[in-house]
């Protein structure tokens, strides 16, 4: 079995997803969590573009990707904004200390 470009891209997508989830699972810093979320989104973007390339609708795929980027930027901004408030009111960015609500 030869490595077709599509397969390579799929492996890349899965790799990015893995990296992102790894980051989400082990990061203790709130900023790093947001960055890991961004890595996840990049995986999805690569996937979208690859899909468009595969079925010949690359224009549509690009516009979809652009929309995802916009939506995702808003989420990232909000995540960081929450981080700022958390830092201000709780004095920490360590997500392990963000566990008062449990049980």
């Amino acid at each position: 079995m030869t490595l077709s470009p599509l397969l390579i891209i799929m492996i890349g997508v899965i790799g990015l997803l893995g990296a992102g989830f790894y980051g989400l699972l082990v990061s203790r810093n709130l900023i790093k969590i947001v960055v890991a979320l961004q890595v996840l989104v990049k995986a999805a973007l690569v996937g979208l573009i690859a899909a468009g390339n595969y079925n010949g609708q690359i224009n549509l795929a690009q516009s979809l990707a652009l929309t995802v980027i916009i939506a995702d930027t808003i989420v990232a901004v909000m995540g960081i904004a929450l981080g700022v408030q958390i830092r201000r009111h709780m004095g920490t960015l360590d997500v392990r200390e963000l566990s008062k609500l449990k049980g």
Binding site: F21, A44, L45, L48, A50, G79
Partner: peptide, 25 residues
């Protein structure tokens, strides 16, 4: 705290949806 945890989990789920959309597309 609740807002941030909600955001992270929800955003991660949302990414999975986009990946699913890419597959279908």
């Amino acid at each position: 705290e609740a807002g941030f945890k909600y955001l992270v989990q929800s955003a991660a789920g949302s990414v999975l949806v986009v990946v699913g959309i890419a597959i279908i597309f």
